[in-house]
């Protein structure tokens, strides 16, 4: 298991370097002179110079990259072009919101997908299976912001059960924190639930058709025991693999959901940065989320090794 960890960590390094190239390379994509483009149409000469200074655009490109990545490794992602604040600090303030939302969404997705996938796979071709399959197709086709609005309309405007917007920090009031997260997390988690249901249904169906499952049934084990003991652990392998990708989608999707429910997370930061063309802030948010995704993928890989002993030695 330790060897697996070390190998995965070593594999992560080149990918992380490439990601940092891509993120840093965004500055090269700015059309024309980045300083003039980023300053906007009505900028003064001083403003353009200040941006040039801030981004260090007068230096050779590799030196610029070296400075940026050197800072990033130490947790310094530069300063906002707009407010002059530290990018890392702005991100740190907003991370708890986005993490709460993404975590709750993942939890809700699993709470929906695991029972739905099991029911669908064990009742193939019956109404329960059709319901799960149609539900999953709908979940994948629904834009999250629209689902969110429908939920708000239903539970906030018409029924008045749940708050439509806002965020309460966990430390302030855990109950209010949870209540305010229900609708956003359901909104964000729906697509992940749909995708995971489809995955689990497919893989569990495959596993239940295997010889060892038939043997287990033939020796007299109850259907229930076979599904949960023999089926689920093996069916979980492909599902866990996809979960890593799901986290990337959840972090991206949270941008939309945070806007919709007025949650002060990374999404709002990213949108404001884009509208202000605040390049260091954009780069910081992209790099930070990419690192989170890579860490989650590392955890998924390790989990994968625990579920499937074959890859530990491979």
């Amino acid at each position: 298991m330790l060897r697996l960890l070390v190998r995965r960590l070593l594999l992560m390094v080149p990918i992380m370097v490439l990601v940092s190239f891509i993120v840093f390379g965004l500055v090269l994509l700015v059309p024309g002179d980045p300083a003039i483009a980023l300053a906007g149409p009505n900028a003064t000469e001083q403003r353009v110079e200040a941006i040039r200074e801030n981004l260090g655009l007068n230096d050779p490109i590799l030196q610029q990259y070296g400075r940026w990545i050197g800072g990033a490794i130490q947790g310094d992602l530069g300063e906002s072009l707009f407010s002059g604040r530290s990018v890392s600090q702005a991100i740190a303030e907003r991370v708890p919101v986005t993490m709460s939302l993404a975590g709750a969404a993942l939890l809700i997705a699993l709470l929906i997908a695991v029972p739905a996938g099991i029911v669908a796979a064990t009742n193939r071709g019956r109404p329960a299976d059709s319901m799960a399959t149609v539900g999953a197709s709908l979940g994948l086709a629904m834009p999250s912001f629209w689902l969110g609005l429908v939920l708000v309309l239903l539970f906030s405007v018409w029924l008045g059960w749940l708050p439509a917007t806002g965020y309460i920090p966990f430390g302030e009031n855990p109950a209010a924190w949870a209540v305010h997260l229900i609708l956003p997390a359901l909104t964000l988690g729906a697509a992940a639930a749909a995708e995971t249901t489809r995955q689990l249904r497919g893989s569990l169906t495959d596993v239940l058709g295997q010889d060892y499952v038939r043997t287990a049934r033939a020796k007299g084990l109850r259907r229930h025991t076979v599904v949960f003991k023999h089926g689920l652990k093996n069916a979980a392998i492909p599902v866990v693999t996809v979960l890593g990708f799901q986290v990337a989608f959840l972090l991206g999707g949270s941008v939309v959901v945070e806007q919709l429910f007025a949650l002060p997370g990374l999404g709002g930061l990213a949108i404001r940065a884009v509208l202000n063309r605040d390049l260091p802030m954009i780069q910081g948010v992209v790099m930070f989320t990419a690192v989170i995704v890579m860490i989650v993928n590392l955890v998924v890989d390790l989990l994968y090794g625990w579920l499937n002993p074959k890859v530990r030695t491979a």
Binding site: I15, L18, V19, F21, I22, V23, F245, A248, F249, L251, G252, G253, V255, V256, A270, V285, V286, T289, A290, V293, M294, N297
Partner: peptide, 9 residues
């Protein structure tokens, strides 16, 4: 590397 960056972001 590109696939490690959340798509919408």
């Amino acid at each position: 590397a590109v696939m490690r960056i959340p798509p919408l972001i």
